[in-house]
């Protein structure tokens, strides 16, 4: 019974992606990882972390780390503004917030429309992305949530 339910639940989320933007580039993140989207809130700096780990926030009593997608993708830093938001994701039951320029929409991208990244792409990006999709002439890079969020030096968390 429970199995059926979760199966169904998964089916409704299948092939759905949340689209967020950094500069003019669109990125897609599988909806099954996304818990909620919140506005930027005060971030407590945590010493001795990778640069892209901005710190931790208090999400209704839960303490979750936030990482800056911009810095994770080695893009130049930009001041946060009112459109900046945090995508709260749950990966292997760990909550992690991802700071992005802004989120735009939820779209369906069928498996057939996803193609692998071209060989010429830089190594670091190859790790972060599962593939690329062309939707209404917009190029969407699909984020591999697990490698994107996981610290580089740790193999498992």
């Amino acid at each position: 019974m429970v199995e059926n339910f979760s199966q169904e639940f998964e089916d409704t989320m299948k092939d759905m992606y949340l689209i967020f933007k950094i500069d003019e580039q669109n990125y897609g993140i599988e909806i099954k990882y996304v818990i909620e989207i919140i506005g930027l809130m005060p971030i407590t700096y945590v010493p001795n972390q990778e640069e892209y780990v901005k710190g931790i926030i208090n999400l209704r009593g839960k303490i979750i780390p936030v990482i800056d997608a911009r810095m994770r993708l080695l893009k130049p830093q930009k001041e946060y503004n009112e459109r900046t938001c945090v995508i709260v994701t749950s990966i292997n039951q760990f909550l992690v917030g991802i700071i992005v320029d802004h989120v735009s929409e939820v779209v369906v991208i069928e498996k057939e429309k996803i193609s692998p990244l071209p060989q010429t792409y830089e190594k670091i990006e190859e790790r972060f992305f599962k593939g690329v999709a062309n939707l209404n002439d917009k190029l969407i890079l699909l984020v591999d949530c697990e490698t994107f969020v996981r610290p580089d030096r740790l193999t498992a968390f």
Binding site: I56, I63, L154
Partner: peptide, 27 residues
Amino acid sequence: IKTLPAILKKIKGISGCTLLGSGQIAF
């Protein structure tokens, strides 16, 4: 006492964190 999120690197000198009355986080 609350534990720090697991994906953070261990910080020498800090054992955990807590929430203050203001909602602020303190190590």
